[in-house]
Design a protein around this nucleic acid. Structure first.
Length: 854
RNA sequence: GCGGGCGUGGUGAAAUUGGUAAACACAAGGGACUUAAAAUCCCUCGGCCUUACGGCCUUGUCGGUUCAAGUCCGACCGCCCGCACCA
């Protein structure tokens, strides 16, 4: 008997789905809609295993929901703008557009071999003017609706390349290509007012009940709502005040210094007359713009000599420092430090010899005995050393002190958010041009709608330094739309998060002339299930949530939340290998000889490293195309689903792939060369059923029920395990009697349908072998379990003595507690452990356990 | 540094959410079939003790709550992800 011919079958069934247009959809009000979306890929060159995992997960959901009768929208496209295309242009002299389009062609071809149920008619690429012209329009609408403004902000500047660097291009404070020390520079840039929606975005999280808790928590923390106060400290010996934000106004009596960010106006001003301070600020600015770099740097400060007056303590002054851990973007860029009750302040105070006065004592401790060691006390307690606040709890003291500050006119209650406005300007070529013209007379002028899209020029030169778009000889020169005088285009482009913040809405009708087809988005949105990597837990998802609200404000759509359900998948990992010289090796370059590994060609010994996320830099990658070529898409898909739950990391192993491959062949043989016969396709169910057949029949219904529940909850690995269990059960049913023959056919047909979302090609092949010549599994409804077969008459109950298992008893389901207790106590084992003494207590959990307490 | 997560046999994992730890697989070992190999099929498979019956131990570490803890609470250790210009 022929083995299952993977290549032939996969091509055949892909063509069959294509011919019948199985996955092309349109709005249909007679069926419930279901929009499943996987995060679209950046076209980096070739698909990697992370894509295979992501798109397999989405496809299982899409095919399952389709079988359940939903009208399923399942589209795919390309997140096509981004830095790698520019790097390729610099390194390989390929124009970004060409590089990107070639990559898309390759990756589309690769994706198509996976047998994914996409409606390819809806494919889009964000780098096409056909796409980005709409986002230029949206930006102008945001501008008109007060959601856009311009402000100065800091960037990483490479003085050799004359270019702005992304954080990932800054390595140890130097430019990745030039090696030059990176500087911070201020540029005037466009911002979207995401902070206007801080409260709404925070509240909205509560409605996202089908998002993972951890992602909701991360978003909540990212928005970072805090309640506190603005306090104005009067300068001592100079005019003006220092405005600070604090969440701990209750600790004001313990204040021992104030600190401002290096780029705070006060610091800038003082630095003009103080070269040492200017040096210190320059030093701070070398840290780069990333928060991680700033926060992990050693805490340092510079005493400016300026002092402020304590608001409550007559004649008491506090020194003002410039400190590298104060962030200009948070609050007012200035703080007061209370070392006893904030760890960073304490470290700072110890370093610079500042006083440390405890003002909160843990409840129940003697106020006079409180001392501060190396650890700041940050819990609730009672106020001490604090005049009119003494004896109050922390929350009461906060309230009281703010009342007092407000009464004195030097402070206000304030809610602050950690969330900052979204800077969308990028000094790059390969992005969507920002549709703005700068006119010497008229200032900032939006590009008139009739002139959209502002298209990127194709003839750009990447050989020089700086932004190629800005250097282009003619592109930026235009007449001002208002006055007609010579003016210049904005040469910045949008952050690529801009494109990915609305693509899900465009998929509803990607051919629409309008940015969004209102009827289509009203029908399809929100996305019912979004699937992608956890690395997008905050930024992409938060920007999309904001963008959706902004689009609503501008009248484009009616939903607020774009993604009703979210599934975040783990990474695909693989063992790492290094050769004798310490260079990384591809898994395909390594052969195993027992436990020892050696180089496939040179025979040199290979060092085995631990398993890590597949990455090009460590070469621990397996090419999906090679796997699909050798084993087929179904094997790769099944392996992706089998052993690990989707949100956990997945370890790619050859052995695991073999296992999936062997299972598919086993199932194929079970249908095509089972020595026991099958009933005819139209045979009626036999009246009487023997116990063996009955058993498998029950198992089949239980499997339908279990797999359905697992798929609903995305427990794909458990669904696979259940399917394998049923396969084992069918294999064990070897009689050639009418009842067994009938059950065998029923079980095999059920298996074909249940496995179809995971291995769709094999499922079609099995279905055909089982005699269904006129129907496709892709168009067949999901099987329904008969509830009559789901319950067992007998249950096995564990019997414990003092929590230790001593035996089991079989009892009728839902039997009386007394009966269970009696049966448990009747066990010899229980009696021998009890040694004839009566039990002190017996706990009976119906249908589950009896615990005898001796 | 801050925020989030994860940790169960040799390996990936399961455990109806507080109720029989290790389902389903992978690897390994043994056997059958075969001239041989591959493929396939069968058996064993957490640890220690025991000829056996069986007993004791076991979910990163330590402690706690409970009749009962992988699951809840506290402390600690290790690893991973994000930190606003990678996508």
């Amino acid at each position: 008997m022929a083995r299952y011919n993977v290549k032939e079958n996969e091509q055949k069934w892909q063509a069959a789905w294509d011919d019948k247009g199985c996955f092309q959809v349109r709005e249909d009000n007679d069926r419930p809609k279901y929009y499943v979306l996987e995060m679209f890929p950046y076209p980096s060159g070739r698909i990697h295993m992370g894509h295979v995992r992501n798109y397999t997960l989405g496809d299982v959901v899409a095919r399952y929901k389709k079988a359940r009768g939903f009208n399923v929208l399942h589209p795919m496209g390309w997140d096509a703008f981004g830095l790698p295309a520019e790097n390729a242009a610099i390194e390989n002299k390929v124009p970004p557009a060409q590089w990107t389009r070639e990559n898309i062609a390759t990756m589309r071809r690769q994706l198509k071999t996976m047998g994914l149920s996409y409606d390819w008619d809806r494919e889009l690429a964000t780098c096409e003017p056909e796409y980005y012209r709409h986002e230029q329009k949206m930006f102008l609408d945001f501008l008109a609706n007060g959601l856009v403004y311009r402000k100065e902000s800091w960037v990483n500047w490479d003085p050799v390349e004359n270019t702005v660097l992304a954080n990932e291009q800054v390595i140890d404070g130097r430019g990745w290509r030039s090696g030059a020390l990176v500087e911070k520079r201020q540029l005037s840039q466009w911002f979207l007012k995401i902070t206007d929606y801080a409260e709404e975005l925070l509240k909205g999280i509560e409605t996202l009940d089908r998002w993972p808790d951890r992602v909701r928590l991360m978003q909540e923390n990212w928005i970072g709502r805090s309640e506190g106060a603005h306090v104005r400290f009067q300068f001592d010996g100079r005019d003006g005040q220092l405005d600070i934000y604090t969440t701990r106004p209750d600790t004001l009596f313990g204040a021992s210094f104030c600190a401002v960010a290096a780029n705070h106006p006060l610091a800038q001003e003082l630095a003009r007359g103080n070269p040492d301070l200017a040096d210190f600020i320059a030093e701070c600015n070398r840290l780069g713009t990333s928060e991680a770099a700033i926060e992990t740097a050693e805490k340092m400060g510079f005493d400016t000599g300026v002092k402020v007056l304590h608001p409550f303590i007559e004649g008491h002054t506090l020194p003002v420092y410039v400190a590298n851990f104060v962030l200009m973007d948070y609050g007012t860029g200035a703080i007061f430090g209370c070392p006893a009750h904030d760890q960073r302040d304490l470290d700072f105070a110890r370093k610079y010899g500042l006083p440390v006065l405890p003002v909160v004592a843990p409840k129940g401790t003697d106020a006079t005995a409180v001392t501060v060691g190396d650890e700041a006390f940050t819990d609730d307690g009672l106020l001490i050393n604090s005049d009119f606040l003494d004896g109050l709890t922390v929350p009461d003291a906060k309230s009281r002190v703010i009342d007092r500050l407000e009464g004195m006119g030097i402070g206000t209650r304030a809610v602050n958010y950690r969330l900052r406005d979204w800077g969308v300007s990028r000094q790059r070529y390969w992005g969507c041009p920002i549709p703005i013209i700068h006119c010497g007379d008229c200032g900032i002028v939006p590009v008139p709608e009739a002139d959209l899209p502002v298209e990127l020029p194709a003839d750009v030169d990447f050989s020089g330094t700086g932004n190629p778009l800005a250097r282009h000889p003619s592109w930026k020169h235009v007449a001002c739309p208002t006055c007609g005088k010579p003016a210049e285009r904005e040469t910045d482009t949008f952050d690529t998060f801009f494109e990915s913040s609305w693509y899900f809405a465009r998929f509803c009708n990607p051919a629409s002339n309008a940015p969004l087809d209102r009827a289509a988005v009203d029908y399809w949105l929100p996305v019912d299930q979004y699937i992608g990597g956890i690395e997008h837990a905050v930024l992409h998802l938060l920007y999309s949530r904001f963008f959706t609200r902004a689009l609503k404000k501008c009248g484009y759509l009616s939903v607020e939340e774009p993604f009703a359900g979210l599934l975040t998948q783990g990474m695909v990992c693989h063992q790492t290998f290094k050769d004798a010289a310490g260079k990384w090796l591809l898994p395909s370059q390594v052969v195993f000889d027992g436990d020892a590994a050696k180089h496939a060609e040179t025979g040199q010994p290979v060092t085995l490293g631990r398993s890590e996320k597949m990455s090009k830099s460590k070469k621990n990658v397996v090419d999906p195309e090679a796997i699909i070529g050798a084993y087929g898409a179904d094997t790769a898909r099944l392996f992706m689903l089998s052993d690990s739950p989707p949100d956990r990391d997945l370890e790619w192993t050859d052995a695991g792939v073999d296992g999936a491959w062997r299972y598919l062949n086993r199932l194929w043989r079970l249908v095509t060369e089972n020595p026991a016969p099958l009933a005819a396709a139209d045979a009626a169910r036999p009246e009487t059923m023997g116990p063996a057949a009955e058993e498998v029949l029950k198992a089949t219904h239980k499997t339908i029920d279990g797999v359905s529940a697992d798929l609903e909850k995305f427990h794909f690995n458990k669904a696979v395990a259940r399917i394998r269990e049923l396969t084992n059960a069918v294999e064990g049913l070897k009689d050639a009697a009418p009842d067994a023959n009938w059950v065998r056919r029923f079980a095999l047909e059920t298996l074909s349908l249940l496995i179809a979302p995971m291995t769709p090609h094999l499922a079609e092949a099995l279905w055909l072998e089982l005699g269904h010549e006129d129907t496709l599994v892709a168009d067949t409804a999901w099987p329904v379990a008969d509830p009559a077969y789901l319950v067992d008459d007998l249950v096995t109950i564990a019997v414990q003595v003092n929590g230790k298992l001593r035996g089991t008893i079989e009892l009728p389901k839902d039997c009386a507690k007394d009966a269970a207790e009696d049966a448990a106590l009747a066990l010899d084992k229980v009696q021998s452990v009890l040694e004839g003494k009566p039990p002190r207590k017996v706990i009976v959990v119906p249908n589950r356990i009896v615990n005898v307490v001796a």
